[in-house]
Design a binder for these strands. Structure first.
Lengths: 340, 340
DNA sequence: TAATTAAACAAAACCAGTTTAGCAAAATGA
DNA sequence: TCATTTTGCTAAACTGGTTTTGTTTAATTA
């Protein structure tokens, strides 16, 4: 067990004061008028003895931990995992480390996690907030912590956020179906009041209205047992035989939907066209390949961390709220081929 | 910006000393003979004013950060994401927080990350090490940091590890193919010398030998462009027409393999049986469903964090090396139905 | 009744840095 | 030549805890 050396050890060894060393390490040698001779002597000593300042002590005295708290819905989801990956990379380049965790969309768990991050003195937050966390988010901001919401936001809170243009993306996807000879287009969504879900629905509704098509919205439960969701979708499709296209509000709903459609013996494409919101590796691998609204993950990640870093670099009073909306990509694949 | 109160603030407010408060907070009131009256007074004050000790200060003085460093190959992979999820949960229950990151199997990146974790004073490590990190791992152990290797290990280092019984699992999977009328079974693996890959290969080789079958091993490159891998597999299958079953050493190789097989117009099952090592959600969703060797992720996670916690709870001298091997599950699905 | 022990707490050192204020010596200016 | 400025550095306070040692007063014990 090799003991690490401290700034005090160096001070003793060279018979100078800690402050001098601190100034030199932090590049303030000239500013603080430390002679070149001493500066180099110290630098050399550090180099030879492999000294690294303790981040803990640094954090304690500066009040900065250089840690960013990243709270996503579920880190094992492809979308969030990719987000985390990109955010982390840029954070590292800027000297920040990431604490990340999954909220599971559970308000209680999220509250605990926010408290945990607060306890750990993270410098800033990137959060995909579950519904109903307005108070907690607001109090974070009030405390002076930079916060960037991501993927969804609270209309009633003045916070920075980075989101997809869900409405437009959803409108375009729905319009595409309407313009490609599909006559009864169902929208399958979650029973949730998250902002992004509502926006997706509204985009669909607008497109249907413009094309004089029937609005068929089915809200399904998506819990721990995907089989339940499949069952519900089978029932829905049985009761709505006129439906010839299904537009799923999330990719995992599409997974269950495809299972349901297969169970009913419908053909994709042919009897049924499908689109999924939020692309997935598997959509390109499945037979048939599945048309999807793709979120530009790396762009969303870049924007999120960019906004957060800009907040972190400004003092409390100068922090302006930044609201960023990023357009989606529409990836046309086999599952939306014109019905026969 | 509300300023947090410190232990010193309480001391001033109640006109008592910091040490007294510290003892009370840490449940040492009786041991340190603090009167019940004072104890309750302090506790009440803390409750009313919402005091929380600074973890930074605590870490600085105790030398413990209560942070575990978790380094996986790629956090966006389903397997590692799930691992992280389970490990994190148990870590939280024990008061630990997780720093996690992806090595991308890159030795240089890994070295940097280890340094980063070291700088951040993590209390212990769980690592899926890329090849050739023996020196770095050894020096971590020498420094007194508890380390648990996971998924793979270094035969030459006396470190704790938790791995799957890759050899046996692979042997069983290969045997299954051999016993189900497949005559030319190819093993597709990475061009890698990681211990778990070698074990999987050896399991396959043994099963082939026992059944008097030809050993057909193809090492493919898996880089940033999966299309390249698909190309290579198409070429391989074209040149080896006798192959009637393919056993993939990882799930993502299976993805590329299925693409290749589809491109060639082969039927699964029928012309070709396939097995993937390491299960994936999609294998159960794909048509046909794909037989796989499943790693018991939650068990692996539980064991890893259990071993690490047991090391963390012991002083340096008492830490015994723990080597844990966990058996796999073999999940038989449609893709290994008997050839026609 | 004096010496000892226990009770109840305070003071101070320590963790490892940063930062402000200050001080002696040398250089400059009037 | 004496006052002032600059140079080059140090001492000490501060971040917010933990832990060891000390001190006073009251209760036992011999």
């Amino acid at each position: 067990m090799i003991k690490k050396i401290s700034i005090g050890d160096i001070a003793t060894a060279l018979n100078i004061s800690k402050s001098t060393i601190s100034f030199i390490i932090n590049g303030k040698a000239k500013e603080k008028r430390i002679s070149l001779a001493l500066t180099e002597k110290v630098l050399q000593y550090i180099d030879e003895n492999g000294y690294k300042p303790s981040r803990l002590a640094q954090s304690l005295s500066t009040g900065k931990t250089m840690i960013i708290g990243l709270m996503v819905e579920k880190i094992s989801d492809y979308f969030f995992a990719q987000m985390a990956y990109h955010i982390e990379e840029i954070a590292y380049q800027n000297g920040y480390k990431i604490f990340y965790c999954s909220t599971d969309n559970d308000p209680d768990k999220t509250r605990e996690l926010i408290q945990l991050f607060r306890d750990r003195n993270v410098d800033g937050y990137i959060i995909t907030p579950p519904a109903g966390m307005e108070k907690e988010i607001q109090s974070l901001i009030d405390e002076g912590s930079p916060v960037v919401l991501f993927d969804r936001y609270y209309p009633d809170i003045e916070s920075s956020y980075v989101i997809l243009d869900n409405f437009k993306a959803s409108y375009n996807a729905s319009k595409y179906l309407a313009e490609h000879a599909f006559a009864h287009i169902a929208f399958i969504t979650l029973d949730s009041d998250q902002s992004q879900m509502e926006d997706r629905k509204q985009g669909y509704v607008k497109a249907m209205a413009e094309h004089g098509l029937e609005v068929i919205v089915e809200k399904v439960l998506y819990g721990n047992d995907p089989a339940q969701t499949v069952k519900q979708l089978v029932r829905f499709l049985r009761q709505n035989k006129r439906v010839d296209a299904v537009y799923f509000a999330t990719n995992y709903l599409a997974f269950s939907g495809v299972k349901a459609i297969n169970q009913l013996g419908y053909k994709i494409p042919g009897t049924m066209g499908i689109i999924a919101f939020d692309d997935h590796q598997v959509f390109d691998f499945y037979e048939p390949t599945i048309t999807a609204v793709a979120q530009p993950i790396s762009e969303l990640a870049r924007q999120s961390i960019r906004v957060l870093l800009s907040l972190l670099n400004k003092p409390f009073e100068e922090r302006a709220v930044q609201k960023v909306t990023v357009p989606a990509h529409f990836i046309i694949r086999d599952s939306t081929a014109r019905p026969l």
